[in-house]
């Protein structure tokens, strides 16, 4: 199926899907607390690492941010009373902590040195493409495209990058993002809008090329 609507008679407006590569959100169970914290780490470490990586563009930073975020979350949970724990919305709360740690870290590290060649994960790209019939040059092109997209995302100011990452990569709704960022929904929508506008300016015609390259691949997959 094409990534974008091709037929004007059949305009689809897609709902952003939560990233399926991450672990599912924690199922309903006992309220979070120090006694079940190892399970919480297990459930959310991939999700938070992915978010921190998109925010920083640096794997070492992302790892340390996630570690710091979990320690802070643990300390905070240990101080909460049972009612506060029962009322806690764990997932947005963990994102908020991760974002705060990220902000502190990036603030103390300015100017950010972003090694663009370290961004796109060559292993992930290879794993992703091994199953398909892609030729090596297609893999290289794809990796170069993803480095472009990552570079564009990292060039956004942090508040816009956070909004765009949560919306399009993490698949969060506007109310959820508003809760994570502690901002009014209108501000979130405005930040997402501004982020997309800047990304359009940076990526320009590359967007159509990346999308159509995938359309071509999907078509050839279908034929095969």
């Amino acid at each position: 199926m094409s990534a974008l609507a091709q037929n004007l008679g059949d305009y689809r407006l897609t709902v952003p899907a939560p990233s399926t590569a991450h672990a599912p959100a924690r199922p309903a169970g006992p309220p979070p607390g120090p006694e079940n914290f190892e399970g919480i780490v297990d459930d959310y470490q991939r999700r938070l690492y992915g978010f921190a990586l998109r925010m920083t563009g640096n794997r070492e930073d992302a790892e340390e941010i996630v570690q710091d975020a979990f320690v802070r979350a643990y300390r905070a949970l240990a101080k909460m009373d049972p009612q506060q724990r029962a009322e806690l919305r764990l997932q947005p709360w963990l994102y908020t902590i991760t974002l705060n740690v990220t902000r502190n870290r990036l603030r103390s590290k300015r100017p950010t040195n972003v090694a663009l060649d370290a961004l796109a994960d060559p292993d992930a790209l290879l794993n992703e493409t091994q199953e398909g019939p892609d030729q090596p040059e297609a893999i290289v092109d794809r990796a170069a495209d993803m480095v472009l997209v990552e570079g564009a995302l990292l060039s956004l100011p942090m508040h816009l990058r956070a909004a765009a990452t949560l919306r399009f990569i993490e698949g969060r709704s506007h109310p959820e993002i508003a809760e994570i960022l502690n901002q009014p929904i209108g501000t979130v929508k405005s930040h997402v809008h501004r982020a997309v506008r800047i990304l359009r300016r940076i990526l320009g015609p590359q967007v159509g090329r990346i999308v159509h390259a995938d359309d071509t691949k999907e078509t050839s997959d279908a034929v095969l």
Partner: peptide, 12 residues
């Protein structure tokens, strides 16, 4: 297209 490009970023 912008939304699509962002969702295509590899999961690390």
């Amino acid at each position: 297209g912008i939304a699509y490009c962002l969702t295509c970023l590899p999961v690390v």
